[in-house]
Design a protein around this nucleic acid. Sequence first.
DNA 1: TATATAAGCAACCGTTCGGTTTCGCAAAAA
DNA 2: TTTTTGCGAAACCGAACGGTTGCTTATATA
Lengths: 105, 105
Amino acid sequence: MRRDIFQAIADPTRRAILTLIALQAMTPNAIAENFNTTRQAVSKHLRILSECELVKQEHQGREIYYSLEVYKMKEVDQWLEQFRAIWEIQFNQLDELLEKMKTQA
Amino acid sequence: MRRDIFQAIADPTRRAILTLIALQAMTPNAIAENFNTTRQAVSKHLRILSECELVKQEHQGREIYYSLEVYKMKEVDQWLEQFRAIWEIQFNQLDELLEKMKTQA
DNA sequence: TATATAAGCAACCGTTCGGTTTCGCAAAAA
DNA sequence: TTTTTGCGAAACCGAACGGTTGCTTATATA
């Protein structure tokens, strides 16, 4: 059961949960109210997000507040880095092409 | 069979394929040589990558060259944007804290 | 023409996924 | 103390996933 951040964000519900708790910590029940699923389903998603440390818990009495571990998102950002260089090159080439077309017109 | 770029990059083999063909187009056989799987397995991955337009084909005789559709990667980058703002705020707060500790020392 | 090769496609198999239902536990409220 | 509430864990189910094997089609080569 090797959890991986890319697998974690593959599910649209989990991505929505991450967005939801990005700015404020929330309990599983509160989170579940925003979706058409049961609390248990949300709980499962939270477990997966916890396993790859995308989310952290804070216990308050019998309530558990979940919040985003935003630094972990940087792993995706770092993976994207290799492609960012390429799409900037392609953008510049397009730019040169447009320039060329302009001078020829 | 809802294909989605996030689901496409969830698989480590597919991520490796994307990196492999990022700089040069390759045929399925050539790609498969880089992994411990059969050509058919790679072919399946390429089909999934094609379905969400992360990859484009170029036919040359009986060979098919696959290459990266790098602009599509920006969708992930755009999704990350919402979190980028947050981690920069947190970074700045850490920065302020370090500054504070320095002046107090 | 006959043969070899590149590649896609379909069928099948075991595993994982996302969800529900049921249960147990601990904290708060009655 | 008893009841309610918030939560996670386990068992189960259908669907999807990743992979293999076998087949067909199309191009290149003898």
